[in-house]
């Protein structure tokens, strides 16, 4: 009997030494400044439009919303949301914070919204797709499986290493994005209130539970969801990596699935059973911000269950195949 810790250590070392994790960091360090620059240009344009007086503009928004509250034609639910919205704007005025001026934290929050379904899972795939097929390509799988260690332990150590690197990638993404964008937009913004608690009932959005949370808390919730999404995608890539021999093939299979997901999200509202596919359930942060789901009947709980089932099935298949299969080459 050999315990798992040294095996996990082996896998961790191999991922580091194979420079897989550095590639992920490098991608972040190259791409985030690009996004930051794009955001900076659009912020400049907005500022020109309002002649640099943001207080006037916010005050105007508050007045408009207060006026609409007295109107009978506006439904009560909307009134509640608008009251909250007014509170939010008032908060900005009181604290002398320009809601339209991006800061490091807001940029990170928006970046997570945009990267949860494709970009972060892609980074995790860089590690997951190679973790088993890489050993087969190099032939080292023969050495790994002829040691006195049960096959399921070998695979489990790889899975644990994957979960660890998945966590590391999500944390690195948040930190690198904050640090780089903060250098341009400033490092403030943790306490700015953000609204969440939207419930989706059928095609309606129920706002009775909407409340404000500080932005740091919102960011934490987003990061948690991003972690879960990338973990499930990572586990699926892990399964593909067990099933196919070549790393390239396993990356292509997973990329195709993810891209199919983003296409389906835009056109599948009529095809109801598409909601059981994992790839249309990746945009979890939309449930936080209240953006309606692409297909009717989807909710945060629903998506979490769908992803959990897919992930669990992938793990089961990986272990079944890996422990039974003949290693012929």
């Amino acid at each position: 009997m050999i315990n798992l810790l040294p095996l996990v250590k082996n896998e961790t070392i191999k991922i580091i030494k194979k420079k897989r994790f550095y590639v992920v960091l490098l991608i972040l360090i190259v791409l985030v400044p690009m996004f930051t620059y794009a955001q900076m240009r659009s912020a400049e344009r907005t500022r020109e439009k309002f002649h640099d007086d943001w207080r006037l503009e916010v005050q105007q928004q508050i007045t408009d919303n207060e006026n609409s509250l007295s109107s009978d034609r506006v439904p009560d639910e909307w009134k509640k949301f608008r009251k909250i919205f007014i509170q939010q704007l008032q908060y900005y005025l009181d604290h002398d914070v320009n809601p339209n001026e991006p800061n490091g934290v807001t940029f990170t929050r928006e970046f997570l919204d945009n990267s949860i379904a494709l970009f972060i899972p892609l980074l995790v795939m860089a590690i997951a797709s190679d973790i088993v097929s890489g050993e087969r390509t190099s032939g080292t799988i023969k050495m790994l499986l002829t040691r006195p260690v049960k096959r399921w332990k070998v695979l489990l150590s790889k899975l644990i290493a994957l979960v660890m690197y998945n966590s590391l990638i999500v944390v690195s993404t948040v930190i690198i994005t904050y640090l780089i964008s903060g250098a341009v937009f400033g490092y403030k913004g943790f306490t700015i209130p953000v609204f969440t608690g939207f419930l989706i009932r059928g095609s309606e959005v129920d706002m009775s539970a909407v409340h404000a949370v500080p932005q740091w808390e919102y960011l934490l919730m987003q990061a948690g969801l991003a972690w879960f999404v990338s973990l499930v995608v990572g586990v699926l890539a892990f399964m593909v990596s067990v099933l196919v021999r070549s790393t390239a093939a396993s990356i292509v299979v997973m990329m195709a699935a993810l891209i199919a997901g983003s296409i389906l999200t835009n056109m599948a509202s009529a095809w109801n059973s598409a909601k059981y596919l994992f790839m249309v359930n990746l945009q979890l942060t939309n449930y936080l911000s209240g953006t309606p789901a692409p297909i009717e009947g989807m909710s945060l709980t629903f998506s979490l269950i769908v992803l959990t089932v897919w992930g669990a099935a992938a793990i089961a298949i990986s272990f079944l195949v890996f422990t039974k299969r003949d290693i012929l080459n």
Binding site: L7, K19, R147
Partner: peptide
């Protein structure tokens, strides 16, 4: 076979941990 991105020593350490 061996992990070409590791040193010979690191390879041996790797397999030593499996026993």
């Amino acid at each position: 076979e061996a992990y070409t991105y590791l040193t010979g020593w690191e390879n041996l350490e790797h397999f030593a941990r499996m026993q």
